[in-house]
Design a protein around this nucleic acid. Sequence first.
DNA 1: CGCACAAGTCAACATCCGTTGACAAGAAAT
DNA 2: ATTTCTTGTCAACGGATGTTGACTTGTGCG
Lengths: 179, 179
Amino acid sequence: MNKALATRDRLLTEARRLLWSRGYSNVPLREIAQGAGVDVALIARYFGSKLGLFEATLENAFAVPDLPDEDTLIETVLRMFVEAPRDGNTPSVLQLIQTNANDPDVGDIVRRAQAEAMQDKLEALLGSPARAALFMSVLLGFGVGEKTLKLKGIASPGSPAFEAQLRHLMTSALSYKGP
Amino acid sequence: MNKALATRDRLLTEARRLLWSRGYSNVPLREIAQGAGVDVALIARYFGSKLGLFEATLENAFAVPDLPDEDTLIETVLRMFVEAPRDGNTPSVLQLIQTNANDPDVGDIVRRAQAEAMQDKLEALLGSPARAALFMSVLLGFGVGEKTLKLKGIASPGSPAFEAQLRHLMTSALSYKGP
DNA sequence: CGCACAAGTCAACATCCGTTGACAAGAAAT
DNA sequence: ATTTCTTGTCAACGGATGTTGACTTGTGCG
């Protein structure tokens, strides 16, 4: 019975790696199974369906630590961006959103999960939905620009310039005092 | 012979509407053909393949008018965002990028087309690749936040608050004086 | 009219993919 | 050792989708 949990975990890890980075519709189950070293049929046994597998990868995906103030928010996000490419194995939550939020199969699920887990916390910390939305927007755009569009004007992750650019965008977003 | 061009155009228009908004892999050819009121096989005749059809929709897609200074750049983009939802029929170039830039089939094409057509102009106008990249990032993020993630903190398009938010982000991006 | 070519339709094929149920190997229990 | 439950594999089905070739309809020209 322990063996089963181990392979279930291998499937889950591989699924998170592939589905989050390339998008739900772009990854066949057979590839996930092969990456985990087992047969496809086991996915049906352990997760019921492809959707079940995807939902399992979302467990605690959007969990955000409680942050005391805006400065530590910025520093935390900075570390997320800088450390994420280091280990390289687990795609970031931003990638998950970018590759799956407009997918016809799972878009709603991703949006809802993100909204429930992150928006309230951000709004509480930043004081207004508008500031929270602009902050999220800036993060999304920077992620898309770097990972997806590969804009050559964005410095390479980890460099001081990269940190300066990201920090500038975040502080700019937080400087919004709108209606 | 004129009739052919007309239906070719109907196919092209419908393809742009569907492929740009929902993404290359998420739209079956049969749906495009049905929307244009013709049979699927005509796509093969007029465009060779699905990829050929998609590439045809990219003709002049990224064409950007020459802009004299940064202020008119901001105003032009603002009008783009405000007017785009009005006619509602043609998705914006930003949507095209968001839904297709990470598609395994056409991602490279979209990235290359965008880079060739927009980046050089933006860099020339803004003076540095970094400022151009941050400007693009901010636009992308705002688009994703509004259309894809539907962040509730983003005002409804067309409202004064919407314009204020977008203007704030753009001027913030342009205020970057990095290395 | 009759013919040739353009424009469009139809059915079928090949492939991919999620899913399913029957079956095999291996461990645990009696 | 035999049985029973767990874990895993295999082949096949059914649906969707891009693509192809044969066929039909329509139109202009002699």
